[in-house]
Design a protein around this nucleic acid. Sequence first.
DNA 1: TGTACATCAGTGAACGCGCGTTCACTGATGTAC
DNA 2: TGTACATCAGTGAACGCGCGTTCACTGATGTAC
Lengths: 191, 191
Amino acid sequence: VAIEFFSERGFNGVSIRDITREVGIKESSFYKHYKSKDELLDTIFGYFNSELAKAKVPEHIDNEPVLKTINPLIYLNRAFEIFKSYADTSVMAKIYRIAVTEQFRDARARDILIDLYEKSLPLLERYFNLILQQKKATHLNPKILANCYQFALHAMVAEFSLLKQYRQDTAIIEQRIAELNAFFGELIKNF
Amino acid sequence: VAIEFFSERGFNGVSIRDITREVGIKESSFYKHYKSKDELLDTIFGYFNSELAKAKVPEHIDNEPVLKTINPLIYLNRAFEIFKSYADTSVMAKIYRIAVTEQFRDARARDILIDLYEKSLPLLERYFNLILQQKKATHLNPKILANCYQFALHAMVAEFSLLKQYRQDTAIIEQRIAELNAFFGELIKNF
DNA sequence: TGTACATCAGTGAACGCGCGTTCACTGATGTAC
DNA sequence: TGTACATCAGTGAACGCGCGTTCACTGATGTAC
């Protein structure tokens, strides 16, 4: 219930009473399970981190032989589809949304986002490096290419996730992500 | 005082009493000047919008004859320097920071950011279009190129601005922005 | 020049509210003998 | 099988606090006559 509520109204927008009312217990019962409201958020972020640590990278996202044969545009779109399916439904996506909205107030939220960036960046970097070598485009730095793509993608995914949260239309942002992927796909083809 | 405090601790992190204490009056006096705390934020954002409406785009950022002779990397770096000098000191930069931190809670804050994007995008788009035509690289869409660059730049500038706010080291992010500019500069040269 | 009056920023004390949290308690459940 | 006891999730009432806001007031200033 807390994950649901925090992801919709933010940490400060939800009181202990809001949560316990929904659960069907009194607010005093809450303190039999958590020392404080803050420890509850700790638990939520801790869960996110432990689940993330367990997560495995899909084969077709980080398998060199497979990557060499795949069309760049298809690769990028597939990576985004995985992202999107997460952002649509899962508990993890809700916690991600909490992190996005709390990032300016809470160091733990910020750490989660930084961790995500640092997890996905090497994947992209390896991929772009592979492609650049294939195309012999050694004058371009794969790290910066990955950084640029990732920054743009993350900003858009964060926006996509927020639109989902407020049940607004996500068509425009999905279109923009498709364009971004198309642009990078095109760029890579012409290296 | 309100702009200063809101930009440092967020709208909810600052009470009327915090502001009036700093000003040297009692909290009740505040209501002789503003109907509510919310109207104060309205006034601040209103000031930002009216100043923005007055602002003129520097000649060397949107003057076709000048642009044609200039090195792309120098152009991008110069644009960022202007941005940076703003983010360093001015009242406008502080209000921008308020908008960044409140964007998930306040529709007005969000509108300010969207407005900024929509103001700067056409400039970049015209610039990239000019370059693409010069290089006869008509297979690439200037709009998407501009979008991609702008998204990455804005995310980095927002981060730069926040680091400034918490008086943390901005060297890493400045380096990344320089790399981003170098990458786009290189890309443009090789179209 | 002096008096009467309007204006209005600032004051002091209080309001109601929702918040996170505490604490002595209850009563159902499981376990030991 | 029956009794005594420990455990512990849940309860009800209350706490202190800081918040945004209100209101009758004061007293300095400027203006009209």
